[in-house]
Amino acid sequence: MNLLRKILFPFAVLYGFITSIRNILFDKGILKSTSFNVPVIAVGNLSVGGTGKTPQIEYLIRLLSDKYKIATLSRGYKRKSEGFVLADENANAEILGDEPFQFFQKFPNVQVAVDANRTNGITQLLSQKNKPQVILLDDAFQHRKVRAGFYILLTSYGDLYADDFMLPTGNLRESRSGAERANIVVVTKCPKHLPEQEQAEIRLKLKLSCSQQIFFSFIDYDTVILGKDERISVDEIKSESKLLLAGIAKPQPFFDYLKNETDECLTFPDHHHFSETDLELIQNKANGRKIITTEKDYVRLKDSKLVSQLYYLPIKSTFINHHQNFDVSILEYVKTNLES
Rank of each mutant, 00 (worst) to 15 (best):
V146I: 13
Y312F: 15
L126N: 07
L73N: 05
F218K: 07
K32A: 03
G52W: 12
A249Y: 06
F17W: 10
L60H: 08
I30N: 03
K316Q: 10
R176Q: 09
L25S: 05
N2F: 03
L31R: 13
L338A: 09
L266I: 07
T336V: 06
N92G: 04
L331F: 04
F26L: 01
G50C: 11
R22Y: 02
N284C: 03
F101Q: 14
V234H: 07
C210Y: 10
Y77R: 14
E230P: 06
R118D: 03
I61P: 03
E230L: 10
I70M: 03
K302I: 05
L136D: 05
T123L: 06
E201I: 10
L226A: 05
R79H: 03
A286W: 07
E236V: 14
L310S: 10
G44E: 04
Q197D: 12
Y59R: 11
D263V: 13
I225L: 03
G288F: 10
G16L: 08
C210S: 14
A71S: 14
K242L: 08
I291E: 07
K53M: 13
F11K: 00
P253D: 12
D27F: 11
K129E: 15
S209I: 06
Q199H: 00
Y68K: 02
P195G: 08
E196V: 10
S241P: 12
A246I: 14
L8F: 14
A42S: 15
K67Q: 13
K78E: 04
A286R: 04
H271G: 06
T72D: 06
P39L: 05
T169H: 15
D115V: 03
P10V: 07
I152L: 13
V38T: 12
E280N: 00
Q124H: 05
Y151K: 14
E276I: 00
K242V: 09
P168F: 06
V134T: 08
T169L: 09
Y161C: 12
L4D: 01
P314H: 08
T294H: 05
H323V: 14
I202W: 01
F11T: 04
I225Q: 06
V134R: 05
S65T: 09
L167M: 15
K259A: 15
L258Q: 06
E276A: 00
N2Y: 04
R5T: 11
L125C: 09
T54G: 01
V114H: 08
Y161H: 14
